[in-house]
């Protein structure tokens, strides 16, 4: 993973416990801000089950302390910190390093 950070938006745009989608190179990246902790996570925006660019529009949930996003298509859950699908662990989607720098949300690509 290179260290080139790409700025995608102002942090104030993120509403806690919701996601947005950013274009990073050719990738569609879903970025989530968790309510309470304020932690940021970035994973691929493509739901591998429906092959559609939609995960940023899913609901954030928690089971046994693990945070996930449920696909808005057919509700498969993807863990935010490592992209593993909780309903089919053979499937993992890409994750991206994400940080806030000078009030800007940045993704490493």
């Amino acid at each position: 993973m290179s260290d080139s950070w790409i700025s995608v938006c102002d942090e104030s745009v993120l509403v806690p416990d919701t996601g947005i989608c950013a274009k990073v190179g050719e990738d569609h990246v879903a970025i989530f801000k968790v309510a309470g902790s304020g932690d940021l996570f970035a994973i691929s925006n493509i739901c591998p089950f429906g092959n559609a660019s939609v995960l940023s529009r899913g609901l954030i949930g928690e089971v046994d302390g693990q945070l996930y996003v449920a696909s808005p298509l057919l509700k498969q859950r993807f863990r935010l910190n490592d992209g593993v699908c909780l309903d089919d662990e053979s499937i993992t989607i890409a994750t991206y390093p994400v940080r806030v720098s000078d009030g800007q949300v940045e993704i490493a690509a």
Binding site: A52, L59, I60, L73
Partner: peptide, 19 residues
């Protein structure tokens, strides 16, 4: 209320199979 809504309610439309 926004973080609670299913995508259909967030964008006030019915999401189809391709998003």
């Amino acid at each position: 209320h926004l973080p609670l809504q299913d995508t259909n309610d967030v964008f006030l439309g019915n999401m189809q199979k391709d998003g």
